[in-house]
Amino acid sequence: MSTTVTEKKQPSTKTDTTKKRVTLTQRDARLGLWLMSPTLLVVLAIVIFPLLWSILLSFQRMRLIQIGRADFFEPLTVANYERVLGSSAFWSSLVITFIYTFGSVVLVIFLGVLAAMAVRQPFRGRNFVRAAYLLPYVAPVVAVTFIWRTMLNPQFGIVNVIGQNVFGWEEPIPFLSQAVGTWNVLGLEIPVPTALLTVIAFEGWRYFPFAFLFLMARLAAMSDEPEEAALVDGATPWQSFRFIVLPQLMPIIGLLAVLRTIWTFNEFDDIFLLTGGAAGTNVASVQIYNFLTVQRNVGAAAAQSVIMALVLVAMLAVYLTILRRRGERI
């Protein structure tokens, strides 16, 4: 397409220099496409093509055993969607995914802001502290989930041992296998979704460094002057944070909320490795995995993935509208 455009231009630009520049741009454009082509090829073959195929599969009746011989031209049907939307398991997993996503994103951003504000002013050992805070995020997910599982183990896990010896718990708390526990406060028995709260806490622990990292970078680039002026005007530290620092962090917080929502909504590893989706933590991606490997129903797994992607897109649209209305720019 570019060649036709430039060819049309060429007759009108007669001078030698312009002609040379046009061909240089043209050559650059062609080279750009060449340099880009390996990336495009890999992404098309391994990401885009499988994605489209999955969407097609969601409209076909397909079992895992059949798929080896399947071609693209199986008859189309909406039976998978009917089946998924008609099952109560789907709706309960959708609700769990929402709670899990919302709780994790809020916790991650809250902890990130807290940590970033705490280490904002220089002190001895700040570099070490910064690096230590990033550890949960860089360490392999299989290792950290295994450590958490061991620490929370009801028999010999350190958390339950300390809880019983020091805090006087009557019996160990099965953090990762109890769907609903009761919490006695002032004679009231409050039901608590133990395992779900535990995996949300894990998300907060594992991903606050991500928010911390971006907020630190923003804080370091911020000018001190508005805060100094506010101090002279008699603002308290809290007011200075609330009305001067926080508004400047809002664009980054908005971006973090969007990114974390996308990733948490699709999160698989953490929950699969911690609870396997048991005890009221059956989020969508774990359920999809079970559709695929236990029930071996490829069509239903694909249909549920597509539905979840649509829900995610709708959520992001709402987010972006809110952020735009508040005048934030992403």
Binding site: G32, M36, L40, F268, I288, Y289
Partner: peptide
């Protein structure tokens, strides 16, 4: 380099992230 579609490349990458990895 000003190649065709340069502005859309990042958008396509981003869109792929909306789907759970298990779908691919």
């Amino acid at each position: 380099l000003p190649f065709i579609g340069r502005r859309y490349v990042s958008g396509i990458f981003l869109a792929a992230y909306l789907f759970p990895a298990i779908l691919m």
